[in-house]
């Protein structure tokens, strides 16, 4: 693949903190290599800003290999940019050509308030997990791992759901700012395993309840989340969450 350099115009959301109002600012970057990652391009921009004595743009990132779920930029109308199943940190500048203008915004949802510039607060996700996204087993109580054979297909499906990185792109993409894909991924991960069975009813209802408390929208099956999820979490998980929920509703058990 040919390497090339490019000059770009960036329109980036700047916001001092959660209280003040933000606005777009325009920046120029030059000599960006097609081999850079999108965040490396931002590093260059920030270096440039520091050199000019200005404040750099705040953005979240850590692993830069698409697994921690920390990076979160809404690029030209798409969470994590245009590449299919790719996080912002894995998006590379090969996607762009000389002279392009790129608009970068933070995840937008009332449940994800902006902390600064492109950084948002996603702790609502943690609280949803705390509401039931676990198997209640204390350290040291476990039986031998192979005493519990699990159908490979089920295990694989469970793994696919468990590969959610909690990035929040689904919320960012959803016109309703719904967190159903995230919640359903966790419910599915655990519901597909025999270990998760005892708590499945409580889990589904409690997590949904917390999701509502956090102020996420409801799912109207639009599907933008699935299209934008960097880990390919499927809408089938939402169907499963709905089943789990209905199951809990009609189970008649007291706690369910």
């Amino acid at each position: 693949m040919e390497h090339y350099n490019m000059n770009l115009t960036l329109k980036v959301w700047k916001q001092k903190n959660c209280k003040e109002k933000g606005k777009f600012e325009t920046f120029q970057v030059s000599n960006i290599s097609s081999e850079m990652s999108f965040l490396e391009m931002f590093d260059i921009l920030n270096e440039q800003l520091v050199a000019e004595g200005k404040e750099p743009i705040a953005f979240d990132h850590d692993c830069r290999e698409g697994i921690c779920g920390m990076c979160s930029m809404y690029i030209n109308g798409r969470p994590h940019g245009p590449w299919h199943q790719t996080t912002t940190c894995q998006l590379h500048m090969r996607e762009y050509k000389d002279g392009d203008t790129i608009v970068v915004e933070p995840w937008r949802a009332n449940s994800f308030p902006v902390i600064k510039d492109l950084v948002v607060d996603r702790t609502a996700f943690d609280r949803i997990i705390a509401a039931g996204g676990y198997i209640s087993v204390n350290t040291g109580n476990a039986q031998d791992a192979n005493c519990l054979p699990i159908d490979k297909q089920k295990a694989d499906e469970s793994f696919a759901a468990a590969s959610c990185i909690g990035c929040g792109a689904c919320v960012a993409a959803c016109p309703n700012a719904s967190a159903m894909l995230f919640v359903s991924a966790k419910v599915s991960h655990l519901a597909l395993l025999p270990q998760g069975d005892p708590e499945r009813k409580m889990r589904a209802s409690n997590m949904v309840k917390q999701m509502d408390i956090e102020g996420f929208g409801s799912c109207t099956n639009i599907g933008a989340c699935e299209a934008e999820c960097p880990k390919g979490i499927s809408l089938e998980n939402i169907a499963r969450l709905n089943r789990e929920y209905i199951g809990a509703m009609f189970s008649g058990s007291k706690e369910g």
Binding site: K11, N76, G77, R78, R108, P175, N176, G215, S218, G223
Partner: peptide, 18 residues
């Protein structure tokens, strides 16, 4: 649902994802 995102996006995904 329409109230879950008070500050909207400047660029929208449009029909690319749904």
């Amino acid at each position: 649902n329409a109230k879950r995102r008070s500050e909207g996006y400047a660029v929208k995904a449009g029909n690319k994802t749904s």
